[in-house]
Design a binder for these strands. Structure first.
Length: 889
DNA sequence: ACGCTCACG
DNA sequence: ACGTACGTGAGCGTT
């Protein structure tokens, strides 16, 4: 089938420049095995794919500049003078961009004395004359002068693949000029990047006015005598020669003596082998994987391979043999995310090169399969060991020897991509022989088993195959990152500790919550009535939109802050309006109570299981810093700061009479971690002496000699400074938190850094490290990549810098408590205690225990926690116990 | 699905 | 001139 007559012309230099700078912040990530930078080549390829896909041209030509000397520089010495030299990281890539084009089967061309523009202009004319529809791709807006009804010009605007397409109508709309007038414009205004001057004192506005009246530069000078005497007229007359010369320089030639014709630009598509060879040379793994994927798709219409899967049944289970197996992968399929309650959908199993699947999970209880999981001599590879452990536990099966956990390992390799879907994660590792659950099961409420068992079993088989196939590569990566220990000693054992904590659950006193619910209900309706009275009408107090109308329009209170969508009614705003209207206090009280009622009282009641407990799920592979998070319910944000809310904790009780809740927390763990990694002697001394760290900071920054001179307000400000330091300080943020001016905040920071020079040094060093390596690490080599650290965008860059400062602190603290948890579980077992570890809230651990064990725990828990790691400063742990969680204070 | 608000460390 | 404190999850209202 003959293609449409379409000609694609690409300005090679300009697109390469755009690609290079678009990916400039990732320059060091794009280096191949020979040390060649490849970011421009990569970006060029992306752009090429996009434009080829959009236009599907029959003919393609990529034009390049031949060299510095052109007919333009001969006419005007300074043409393009003063331009920064092309960076060597880019110039080294040009030969390979031409190789890329060759692999694509695309002609590239350059011509002595001419620029790429002129080649394009000439070829565009020829294309038009031969009835072609022409598309020009460039990063240079000057080329829009070439637009006609047959030629459009696509200009890359942002990144590499975002383009703006110019037609004559679009040019007129955008510039107020016809395409052919662009050269007149440039003649008048000049071009600073190409370094030619134009007419003195004539800028865009004046030029537009002139061209509107006289059409062209020629037109202007034909009628110049009619113009009134003015500075402008004088300048025009004085610079007449310059104007014509500049117009000439700006004019793209359409008559360059090309040595090639339209026929030479015919494009028959890329040769796969050539592309493979080129991508291999460049280390473009994802492009290679894409090639494989598309070729597979072309071969058999399916993105994934066809596997031979046997359905396991009660009858054929006896035939299963694995005693000598060296490679076992298992995937348990559930109806939804909540593995504590979800229906079982089935499982997939890979034993060496054989694949099995079944819907009936009762089979797993049969000795034949049970043994596979429980006998420690079999190492099982899984995706999400915690989930698998907890779900098998519901079947009465203990998963005793997990080897490779694809989910955990992927997360450690890159804490920033945190999908929970096996297919998605596999794809991120350039492995495409498995579909995502969404593709097979559908999403949200529509999620369901495929109609045909064969389709389902194939998917299960591909999942276990992916686990098995990815193991070696990912473990090699872990090793390269020095993360094997983090995986084997921390994350993998922790996953099972967490599973046990989740399974244990914490008992909730339903009656207590019921009482609170009715009490809150009454108080809420009283407040509601008061608010309606004060507003003079009924409205939804929970709607920020409706509340905004009442406060700022009806009651005419001053607008303090706006959000994207309207007035802000957040607490800090309402605080400022206090005293202006009695409604504010009532709204604040209503808000506080409504939150407690809906999120905590009603929210918790909804998730109490039949055993009278709540079983949260800890997400171990979500946060960028290495912390855990808790969902369904979130037990890491139960109220504590306000007395009213704190009472929610009275509903968290032990599972047995005569047991108590026991809690231990690290005191100032993040600042201690900072004292350790920064090596700052003053900060370390403060912790070694076990002084009040905020007071001691206050003494430093206020220049006091004695702790008795520290006023509560000084301590409060010092505390805010310490927080700021941990968060990656900014004067703005600090000012906001202590309610000072930015200037004062800045002074605080400066005094702080002068007093704690080690901390200052650390902050500078860590940002430098992040820039050089592209990532930061915790004490145990947990990594977080920070690509934005090199961004030209101030906000993105600043954010990355604060993250670079904060992540090693927050992340190392997370590492430490994880180690403590693993050791804790071991110690509890070793000591034969009945006590159970139930919750982790970032720097605290919560247990339930028989009263008689409390004395033991009071010794044991702090000992285990403060000896989790050895730092340059001691770790301090504080403990308490009581009848309920509320009473552990 | 997304933004706002607010609960925690 | 810009516009930020770090890390989370849930409920609600609006789109």
């Amino acid at each position: 089938m003959a293609k449409d007559k379409k000609l694609l012309l690409v300005d090679g230099n300009s697109v390469a420049f755009r690609a290079f700078f678009a990916l400039h912040n990732q320059l060091e990530r794009f280096v191949n095995h020979n040390g060649l930078h490849t970011n421009a080549i990569y970006g060029f390829k992306l752009m090429l794919d996009k434009i080829l896909g959009e236009t599907d041209p029959a003919n393609v030509l990529v034009a390049f500049d031949a060299g510095k000397v052109t007919f333009r520089t001969k006419k005007y010495d300074n043409y393009k003078g003063g331009r920064a030299k092309t960076p060597s990281e880019l110039s080294e890539q040009f030969p390979y961009i031409k190789e890329l084009l060759t692999a694509y089967g695309i002609k590239s061309y350059e011509l002595a004395d001419y620029e790429a523009d002129d080649i394009i202009g000439t070829m565009a004319k020829e294309g038009e004359a031969n009835g072609y529809e022409v598309t020009v791709v460039t990063g240079d807006r000057d080329l829009t002068q070439l637009t006609t009804d047959k030629t459009s010009v696509a200009v890359t605007i942002k990144g590499v693949t975002e383009i703006e397409k110019y037609t004559p109508a679009h040019v007129i709309e955008k510039y107020g000029l016809r395409p052919e007038q662009i050269i007149d414009m440039k003649g008048l205004t000049g071009d600073s990047s190409d370094n030619y001057p134009g007419v003195t004192k004539v800028g865009e506005k004046t030029a537009l006015k002139l061209l509107k009246q006289y059409e062209t530069i020629e037109g202007i000078y034909e009628h110049i005598d009619e113009m009134k005497k003015s500075k402008l007229k004088e300048n025009l007359l004085a610079d007449k020669e310059i104007a014509f010369m500049c117009k000439d320089l700006a004019t793209i030639r359409t008559d360059a003596p090309l040595e090639l014709t339209l026929a030479d630009t015919k494009w028959d598509g890329a040769k796969r082998e050539d592309l493979v060879a080129f991508f291999e040379e460049m280390d473009f793994k994802s492009f290679l994987a894409q090639l494989n994927k598309t070729s597979d798709a072309q071969n058999d219409e399916e993105a994934v391979s066809k596997l031979d899967v046997s359905e396991l049944t009660a009858d054929n289970l006896a035939d299963l043999s694995y005693t000598e197996a060296s490679d076992i992968s298992f995937y348990l399929e559930l109806a939804n995310d909540n593995y504590h309650t979800a229906d079982f959908w089935g499982f997939g199993l890979k034993i060496d090169d054989k694949f099995y699947a079944a819907k009936d999970v009762e089979l797993l209880k049969q000795p034949k399969l049970r043994q596979l999981f429980e006998d420690e001599k079999y190492e099982i590879d899984v995706f999400d060991g915690k989930r698998t452990y907890a779900a098998l536990n519901r079947l009465g099966i203990t998963l005793n020897n997990i080897n490779f956990d694809l989910l955990l390992v992927s997360y450690l390799l890159n804490t920033s991509d945190n999908s929970n879907d096996l297919g998605n994660l596999a794809h991120r590792h350039d492995y495409y022989d498995v579909k995502t659950d969404e593709e097979v099961y559908g999403k949200g409420a529509k999620r369901s088993l495929p109609a045909e068992d064969e389709v389902y079993f194939e998917h299960l088989a591909h999942k276990v195959k992916a686990i098995s196939d990815l193991e070696d590569d990912l473990m090699v990566e872990l090793k390269k990152n020095e993360q094997v220990e983090l995986y084997l000693q921390i994350e993998r054992p922790l996953s099972l500790v967490l599973a046990q904590m989740e399974i244990a659950g914490i008992t909730v006193d339903r009656e207590r919550l019921d009482i609170m619910q009715s009490e809150f209900k009454e108080r809420l309706s009283e407040l509601e009535q008061l608010i309606y009275q004060e507003a003079g009408e009924e409205f939804n107090i929970n709607s920020p939109k409706q509340l905004g109308v009442i406060l700022f329009e009806k009651l005419k209170l001053p607008v303090v802050k706006k959000t994207k969508t309207g007035y802000s009614t957040a607490v800090d705003v309402l605080e400022k309006l206090r005293g202006m209207s009695p409604i504010i206090d009532n709204i604040l009280a209503y808000r506080q109570l409504a939150k407690l009622q809906s999120t905590y009282v009603e929210g918790l009641l909804k998730v109490i299981s039949t055993d009278g407990k709540v079983h949260t799920r800890y997400t171990q592979t979500l946060t960028a810093t290495g912390r855990l998070s808790s969902i369904d319910p979130n037990l890491q944000n139960i109220p504590v700061r306000l007395e009213e809310g704190r009472k929610i904790r009275q509903s968290f009780v032990p599972s047995y009479p005569d047991w108590e809740i026991f809690a231990s927390d690290y005191s100032q763990i993040e600042l201690r971690v900072l004292a350790h990694i920064s090596g700052d002697p003053h900060m370390q001394a403060a912790f070694k002496e076990d002084s009040d760290i905020h007071a001691s900071t206050a003494m430093k920054i206020f220049g006091l000699d004695d702790a008795s001179e520290v006023t509560p307000n000084m301590r409060r400000q010092a505390k805010a400074v310490n927080f700021g330091i941990v968060y990656g300080i900014s004067d703005f943020g600090l000012a906001q938190s202590i309610g000072s001016t930015r200037k004062q905040a800045k002074e605080f920071m400066q005094t702080y850094f002068a007093s704690f020079p080690g901390v200052h040094q650390y902050m500078q060093d860590i940002i430098k490290t992040a820039r050089e390596k592209g990532y930061v690490e915790t004490l145990f080599h947990r990594r977080r990549y920070l690509p934005d650290i090199k961004s030209k965008n101030y906000n993105l860059r600043s954010f990355a810098e604060r993250t670079a400062m904060n992540t090693p602190i927050q992340g190392s603290a997370a590492d430490i408590i994880k180690v403590a948890m693993i050791n804790m579980q071991t110690e509890l077992k070793k000591a034969g205690l009945k006590a159970k570890m139930l919750l982790q809230v970032h720097d605290e651990l919560i247990f339930e225990a028989p009263k008689e064990e409390l004395e033991t725990l009071k010794e044991l828990v702090p000992k285990v926690m403060d000896s989790a790691v050895e730092l340059a400063v001691p770790l301090k742990v504080e403990s308490a116990s009581g009848k309920t969680w509320f009473d552990t204070k």
